[in-house]
Nucleic acid binder design. Structure first.
Lengths: 338, 338
DNA sequence: CCTTACGTTGACAGCGCTGTCATCAGATGT
DNA sequence: ACATCTGATGACAGCGCTGTCAACGTAAGG
């Protein structure tokens, strides 16, 4: 059992290889009857065209790259699978690449990937999507790419995002509606643009409800569990401790839960805790987390979709914003009368 | 800024392209001075050889495939990164592919990947590594592959695993040493070979300590949180409920924790809970999980290492077993005198 | 009726590399 | 001294496709 080539298919279908190529690439001007014969031969021989040959010979490689930089496992798996799903539908393949290095080295790493694999385009999720240097380097290579959750400093390339500020505002309002006024907030990694947006949403909600913004209630986190645990301990050690804590992602919210448990505080009766992202974690903590659903899978799907469209039609920049929603579970409750 | 080719390098170094090729492929019979000149040119031009051209022209593609089938996010991310790390060291690239379909369709999916991408070999983690049909199909294609945690029904191909039975025995003994005799057990997915091994280890420990094996204490799980929650609820509803529960992975152990919390049972004072795998989850639950560290990252690294060795030396089957270790955290404690 | 256009198909070059084989200088053996 | 071997290098074919262009038959237009 060996690999079949286009010649085998051409022979089996009684046509020239160029005709097989036409059918495989959905090119026009092939008789319906011929197309059917070729497709039958392809099917019968279990023929799969060689990506290497295709990308060497033609302008397309049928390969999309997904480059990312060390974010949380749950996020990146959703992103991967969303992108893979869309690729599969179009018979593209996805090349997943975890970048190494920083700054110039990172750029070389990505450009190296592009040069070696001949990918037709790149899906660039946050936080890499915020690297101006990378964007510039890709532009120089004239490589199409779509960014997920790019920073506000914008660019004419297509991108997909969600309304981070609005979502954070809604979550904060949810807590305010439950009667909370002393609401702690844990920010995300300082270099992620989403971190600033989420903080903005928190502050906007406070302001809209005339609740004084109290800097002591805001702690710096880094999107990882340990930072949430640390920030949670600090917040709960405050003389007038918050009755609710809103963490900028679920991992950190899980850290706050642990901090509360350490002190023997009941969640949600003595402390409400809210997260962000709605990753797997939010469903397995005790209690389960009230959180914002960030549609990572769908964002990756859409980003890949935009990229494939751009490759087909050579069409320019488009941006799409996906809907989020509040997921209210058992970690938030009305504030208790002290 | 455009892609450089081997011709550019050859011109810059003042040699024939074949000589550049020799240097790039570590072939012998190149003068040291010539090699240095070529490498300097490669560096200066930021040249990256085209994988497509290489795999078309030669016998090697410098590509390894990682195929997997829907396991937990935390597991597969570790596997991916372990394999990527090893690939990077050898200037190979890793093609990550989530399989689709079942049985014959799955086989076609994998063979399709192999045919299209020309991967030199495959890393096959559990549970795919247990598919006899897949193994046979790969053999027919004469494609080198290394399995991670294959089933006992063995094969002369290389593989990497850990001692599942021994680890489960140790964990059960840990619980027994804490004074537990009514120990619940939640099995893994029935088609995973590791599930049976872990159950064997549990039973072996009971037997060694002359504790009666009680079938009612053993519940079927499927390696997912919900199944652990369900099984946990059942176990804790038993008239003579277990004082400890050992779940076959961390996700299910988290489910048991939730079941305990629902009933207001304190862990570990009223119930000890143990997991398996030592994924990220084990460090963020309350209390943090006592678990078995399964070295997924290292297993993938080693599997990739074996594969690369086999590609280089054409050497046959080897199997390597990686060490596990018990991670005792706060979810297990001595049994309380009732 | 012939010309033109169009739809359909195939011949062939060439993408950027590696494998094979030839070439040549210098070292080695007798 | 000559034949022989060895190491270093290059010329060239060809991997499996796609892009280009030519060829052909047939329908439409004058």
């Amino acid at each position: 059992m060996t690999r079949k080539t286009i010649d085998d298919v051409a022979k089996a279908a009684g046509v020239a290889i160029k005709t097989v190529s036409r059918v495989l690439n959905d090119e026009p001007n092939v008789r319906e009857e011929t197309r059917a014969r070729v497709l039958a031969a392809v099917e019968a021989l279990h023929y799969f065209p060689s990506l290497s040959a295709r990308s060497l010979a033609g302008r397309r490689s049928y390969l999309i790259g997904l480059v990312y930089e060390n974010p949380s496992a749950n996020y990146i798996v959703d992103i991967q699978h969303g992108a893979m799903a869309r690729c599969r539908q179009e018979k593209f393949r996805l090349f997943v690449h975890q970048c190494s290095g920083r700054d110039a080295e990172l750029i070389r790493d990505v450009i190296g990937l592009v040069d070696q694999t001949h990918v037709d385009g790149l899906v660039v999720p946050a936080p890499l999507s915020q690297s101006i240097d990378l964007i510039r380097a890709l532009d120089r290579r004239k490589l199409p790419f779509v960014r997920i959750s790019p920073s506000a400093i914008d660019h004419r390339s297509p991108s997909v995002d969600m309304d981070d500020e609005g979502a954070a505002r809604e979550m904060t309002e949810h807590l305010i509606e439950l009667g909370h006024t002393r609401i702690g907030f844990i920010t995300g990694h300082p270099t992620h643009h989403a971190s600033a947006l989420r903080l903005d949403g928190y502050r906007a909600a406070l302001q809209a409800h005339r609740i004084l913004y109290e800097p002591a209630y805001v702690r710096q986190g880094h999107f990882v569990f340990e930072s949430g645990l640390g920030a949670g301990r600090e917040l709960l050690a405050l003389p007038k401790r918050p009755t609710a804590v809103f963490a900028s992602n679920d991992d950190m919210a899980a850290g706050v839960l642990m901090a509360a448990h350490e002190l023997g505080l009941q969640v949600p009766s003595q402390l409400s805790v809210a997260g962000y992202d709605d990753t797997y974690i939010a469903r397995i903590t005790w209690p389960r987390l009230t959180t914002v659903h960030q549609p990572s899978y769908d964002m990756a799907w859409s980003a890949t979709d935009l990229l494939l469209q751009a490759l087909k039609n050579g069409e320019g920049a488009r941006t799409s914003r996906l809907a989020h929603r509040l997921i209210v579970r058992e970690s938030t409750a009305p504030v208790r009368a002290d």
